[in-house]
Design a protein around this nucleic acid. Sequence first.
DNA 1: CAGGACATGTAAGATGTTACATGATTCC
DNA 2: GGAATCATGTAACATCTTACATGTCCTG
Lengths: 203, 203
Amino acid sequence: MLGLLTAGPASGYDLLKVFEISLNHVWPATQSQVYAELNRLAGAGLVKAAAEGPRGRKEYAITETGIAELRHWLTEVEPQRTHRFEALLRVFFLSELEPEQARTYLERQATAAEEDHAGLLELRESVSQGDDPLSLYGNIALEWGLRFTAMQREWADWAAERVASLNGLPAHPTAAAPPGGSPPSGAPPADPQADAPPAGRPA
Amino acid sequence: MLGLLTAGPASGYDLLKVFEISLNHVWPATQSQVYAELNRLAGAGLVKAAAEGPRGRKEYAITETGIAELRHWLTEVEPQRTHRFEALLRVFFLSELEPEQARTYLERQATAAEEDHAGLLELRESVSQGDDPLSLYGNIALEWGLRFTAMQREWADWAAERVASLNGLPAHPTAAAPPGGSPPSGAPPADPQADAPPAGRPA
DNA sequence: CAGGACATGTAAGATGTTACATGATTCC
DNA sequence: GGAATCATGTAACATCTTACATGTCCTG
């Protein structure tokens, strides 16, 4: 929220919109949280009420202290390294399902990733045309999303195929590698052992 | 936890070890949580106490109901799509820093990703040699990690270079491929031109 | 004048983390 | 007998989600 307020004063309602529209896939936040946090930040002197508007609207502006805190966070605090990837967690337990169901799961992941990717491509188009050119850092973040979703899709397709081939399931036309086209973001790793021996369970 | 218990009965202590060692980057859990959750699951009939050991050790086994619940989760429940990527969130606000600091941040991300990647490669070696061959799904999950960390590193290198070139900063030698070591999972692509993101995907 | 967008808040409950607290067994 | 490891739990606190609650302003 401090970061968002560096772009200029805003109300909780404004910030909420930003979270919903542009930050939702990176850092979701709820209405409850935003309003409570604004009051907390104001109490801590990191933001201050800047103006009052029509319907009880309260605009907040970041303070010098707030900017210092933001910079401190950006430069001194180590980012959290562990993440929770529910979709990946499930993969560990796919052996509980029939191979066919497992493949279905992986193919669904591939589809979802593809959809996310398409959405981001669209976002890039809509923004680079319009009067709202994304900043350097906005573009860098967008590029991350593009690469991430591409990677997810390639991986899921690869994995679905592996499951199928190790279980004698009929090949799916959809799982085939994209024809001819140069592969996306920086080339997928060449398939490591596409035919590794099946074996016991993970710990 | 239900998934872990399909491999056989285990105590909270056992499960905790698994979380620390092999699940930590995908789904961290604390000691508190594990023990509390085991009791909760036992209360719900999804696991049952199976045996008592030496120092108050209590082994739990998954029940039929638990297996059904696990399968239900795997097949019917939509995985959560939004994630929190703190390291990426920060990118949105890097404009608050001097370009040089922003580049430092991105380079640190690249290094961290490279280290993670190396750790996974090592894990693959140590496991494929040993007497504990990873299962198909263990390998698929590992491959995800390899691809993810490779993608992160490529992106961060690319981004750091972009920041530098748009700000007339001197080029860094560090942005080049790592010395000697064969690059990440299956060869990272030669970096495409620094100003032409490679993210497009075939539909 | 009705409906939708604007606008803010609180309360209850679930989930997660950190720290505290305790004790048994094994190995050297 | 001391240290490490095994082993389980509780309490306090922080965080996050869902639902509830309320009121204003603008547009058609």
